[in-house]
Design a protein around this nucleic acid. Structure first.
Lengths: 193, 193
DNA sequence: TAGGTTAACCGACAAGTGTAGGCAATGTAG
DNA sequence: CTACATTGCCTACACTTGTCGGTTAACCTA
């Protein structure tokens, strides 16, 4: 199990895609491009991934931990931790590879990657909301989790598409006032009459 | 101007795509499929649209008015109107063409369509926030607009992917408590100390 | 209705996609 | 170290994609 050749090929393909997606739109990257950049034959690509989108999903799983962490680090109602600092880390991680994320999340990007990132962030928020426990498939807590995850993905995408007009710190300061009032850390949010 | 043939071909292609996307994933729909279903030659397709994603974007622009309207209809801080009713309309419009929207917004969907819907909803929210005026490119109000738009797209996508487990009314009731506290109708949101 | 305009179709082309079978090199287990 | 299993590569194939000119027919305007 865990053949060394497989790990090498996976790393080569994922690295090649990341490199290419930094100066080109994802839709303009062909399987042949990736295989060539990775020094791997085209048929080998298909031995591991079905298409470019599947590779992109695999490639970003190793990159988005910093993005997902923001969901668990956010204090929510409890006021613990440093939520603005977490948000700054979130936006800084995006800025670190701005052109890459713009290529993946923008209009020419991949619905698969967008869905994957949103899903992981939503799952993290849900885990936090249930206090580490697991939620039933029809649990209403899925709604606030998807709400927050989608909101942050939306803000991030909008920010990247505008060329990162604000600094990560400014974005954190602008986002927190809205996010803080979205009670997503409690099981029974109290409706406002 | 406005050649009748062009309108007919556009309608035929958009209708064909909508029909096909209702029982197949968007990624499994080829240009030849759409052209055949529309009774149009393949080269004619390329005379009007660059690829399936561009057609999908055009096809949904005529469908998402009900989705966009929720942004302007939401009362926000003013408490005017019937926000829960607007949200119900929003989710009901999604449910009306559930399999189509699932095909467009899901992992096998189109980043172009996702981005387009989010952008239009964000623009509507921004217009409402500025009271009908126009916002500068770097205006901080872009952040809450993108926040709300992304949140609703996220909730909608999550709901569709779970097979619409709740009714539109339930979704409206679940979404409103979170959405209502996100002050997006005022120019100067008051930060919480 | 007669005219020029232009959309739609056709055929063909290079390039990319996805799949299959066979072969050589590498890795792992014994 | 040896033997077996697996990986990666090569070749080849049918198919799709995106783009050309050139032709026919429909459309708008006057």
């Amino acid at each position: 199990m865990g053949d060394r050749r497989v790990r090498r090929t996976h790393a080569a393909l994922q690295g090649a895609l990341i490199r290419l997606a930094e100066d080109r739109e994802l839709s303009q990257i062909s399987v042949a491009d990736v295989a060539g950049q990775a020094g791997v034959s085209r048929s080998t690509f298909y031995d591991h991934y079905r298409d470019v989108h599947e590779l992109a999903e695999a490639a970003c799983t190793g990159m988005i931990d910093e993005l997902v962490d923001v969901m668990t680090a956010l204090g929510g109602d409890h006021g613990t931790g440093d939520p603005i600092g977490s948000l700054r880390t979130f936006f800084a991680a995006l800025a670190e590879h701005a052109s890459l994320y713009r290529s993946l999340l923008g209009p020419q990007g991949s619905a698969r990657v967008i869905d994957h990132i949103r899903r992981r962030m939503s799952a993290a928020a849900l885990t936090r909301a249930t206090g580490g426990g697991t939620a039933a498939p029809g649990d209403p807590l899925h709604v606030p989790a998807a709400f927050i995850a989608g909101a942050l993905v939306g803000v991030a995408t909008d920010w990247l598409q505008r060329g990162c007009a604000h600094t990560p710190s400014e974005m954190a300061e602008l986002t927190w006032p809205i996010l803080s009032v979205c009670h997503f850390g409690t099981r029974a949010p109290a409706p406002r009459p």
